[in-house]
């Protein structure tokens, strides 16, 4: 009996988009269009152009701020409700990052990693809400044609956003690295040989480690690029996959994207996790001193 009810509800839900599709095909061509790679400008705030992905970014930020305010309005020693949820999130993130960064470093850098994780996660998931990217207006282009512009667009489906995150991390990384090692120690960490050999062997090692240091510098400089491209590529590709699946069989447009929505929920979580994990590991690698380093390595070999 319940099964039949479920089927009936599904059928009822199916009628809505089918009806929509009939209306659309009656009005004209059902044109297939992917997500444009550039965010469109919604309105201008003086000289500052506000794009639709910036609007989503601000909405998500506002949501997180409002949630944090509501959760910590009446802090109780025995938490319940929103405060409990917020504490669970922050505590599990702190424990997770503490395993990677170590006790001292996590205390210093937790604010950054927790913030980017929560921000990226909620931006990714916010972009999956139906209506974002599909509700918009038909803008008049300069050549007289009409083009569909959505009001909202997933925040991380814009390379500007992900580059901003990656560049901010790179800046913080340099600051933390110099604070932990000192300006000389920072370059020593990259270029100086680790072994204590003597004589001719020593100079040989110095030359090799100088070369290794150049390679290391290149890979460090490439980190922000790969971080931003990875996040942008995943989210942008996800949005395009959803749109393609919606258009692949027009009258099944309500069913085929469903599994991909679940995939995108997973991808949104994994990409937020990857961004946080990679940045945390990069920070740990440069900030760990000799004792922390040997301890970490010994730990890795023991198991």
């Amino acid at each position: 009996m319940r099964f039949i009810k479920v089927i009936l509800i599904w059928l009822a839900l199916a009628i809505v988009p089918v009806a929509g599709w009939c209306g659309e095909s009656a009005s004209g061509e059902a044109s297939e269009h992917g997500l444009p790679s550039k965010a469109v400008i919604v309105f201008n705030l003086g000289p500052l152009a506000i794009t639709n992905s910036m609007v989503v970014t601000m909405l998500v930020t506002l949501g997180i701020v409002v949630f944090a305010q509501l959760a910590t309005r009446k802090v109780q020693s025995v938490p319940s409700g929103l405060q409990n949820f917020a504490e669970w999130m922050v505590e599990s993130l702190y424990g997770f990052l503490g395993e990677i960064l170590g006790d001292k470093l996590v205390k210093k850098t937790f604010w950054f990693f927790a913030t980017i994780f929560l921000f990226i996660l909620f931006t990714n998931w916010f972009g999956l809400i139906p209506g974002i990217g599909t509700v918009g207006w038909n803008a008049l282009m300069s050549d007289g044609s009409h083009e569909f512009h959505p009001w909202l667009r997933g925040g991380n489906a814009d390379l500007n956003m992900t580059s901003a995150l990656a560049i901010l991390f790179f800046f913080m990384w340099v600051v933390w690295a110099v604070q932990a090692n000192g300006p000389v120690g920072f370059f020593k960490h990259i270029f100086a040989p680790g072994s204590d050999s003597t004589g001719v062997m020593k100079w040989f090692m110095v030359a090799i480690f100088l070369f290794v240091g150049v390679l290391e510098t290149l890979s460090i400089l490439f980190r922000p690029v790969s971080l931003s491209f990875r996040l942008f590529g995943n989210i942008f590709a996800g949005e395009n996959v959803l749109e393609a699946m919606m258009n692949i069989v027009p009258w099944l447009g309500w069913l085929i994207p469903l599994p991909f929505y679940f995939l995108e929920i997973l991808v949104g979580l994994v990409q937020a996790l990857v961004f946080m994990l990679l940045t945390a590991v990069f920070t740990q690698l440069i900030c760990s001193h000799d004792e922390g380093h040997s301890h970490g390595e010994g730990h890795a070999h023991d198991h």
Binding site: S226, R230, L273
Partner: peptide, 14 residues
């Protein structure tokens, strides 16, 4: 595994 998988798939985006 997550870190290494991210590094491996990054090549595609390049």
């Amino acid at each position: 595994a997550i870190i290494l998988a991210a590094l491996a798939e990054g090549i595609t985006f390049f």
